[in-house]
Simulated scan of single mutants.
Amino acid sequence: MKKVFFLVVAFLPFLVQAQTEETFAIKGKLGNLGAPARAYLIYKLGANQVIDSSLVAGGSFDFKGNILNPTNAILVVDHKGIGFNKLDSTADILHFYIDKGEFAINSPDSAKKAKVTGSKINDDDKNLTAQLEPIKARAQVLASEGMKAGAEKNTPEFRSAMQAKYKKLQADQKTVIKKFILGNPDSYLSLLALYDVDGPSPDPFELDSLYKTLSPALRNTETAVNFMKALEPLKHTAPGAMAPDFTQNDVNGVPVKLSSFRGKYVLVDFWASWCGPCRQENPNVVRVYNKYKEKNFTILGVSLDRQGARADWLAAIKNDGLNWTQVSDLKYWSNAAAALFYVSSIPANFLIDPNGKIIAKNLRGDDLDEKLKEVLGK
Rank of each mutant, 00 (worst) to 15 (best):
V116E: 01
A217K: 15
K153R: 13
L169D: 02
R306V: 09
D320Y: 12
I74H: 05
V16W: 07
V8K: 09
V176R: 10
D329G: 06
D125R: 15
N66E: 14
T221K: 09
L12V: 11
V375I: 04
L376V: 08
T155V: 05
A309V: 09
L351V: 10
E370I: 01
A18S: 03
A272N: 12
Q170K: 13
L207V: 08
F227W: 09
S209V: 05
L218H: 09
V286Y: 00
V343K: 03
D203C: 11
I352H: 13
D369H: 03
R38Q: 15
N85T: 08
Q173F: 07
F61E: 01
I299A: 02
N106H: 08
L304S: 00
A18N: 01
G46T: 01
K293R: 06
I121A: 13
H95Y: 13
G81W: 09
L368D: 07
K168I: 12
E22M: 08
V16I: 12
T175P: 05
K2M: 11
K64L: 03
G58F: 05
V56L: 05
T213N: 11
M242N: 06
V56A: 01
G253Y: 03
K80F: 12
F261Q: 07
L182S: 11
K2N: 15
Y289E: 06
R287F: 04
L75K: 00
P108N: 04
K378G: 09
D99C: 10
K174V: 06
I121T: 10
A47N: 07
V254I: 06
P233A: 02
R310L: 11
G321C: 01
K165I: 01
K357C: 03
L267C: 10
L372Q: 02
I346S: 10
A151M: 02
L182D: 08
A360Q: 04
L368F: 05
S215L: 13
K229N: 13
P244S: 13
T155P: 03
L192F: 08
A161V: 11
L33G: 00
A149F: 08
K264F: 05
E206N: 11
P13I: 00
G321A: 05
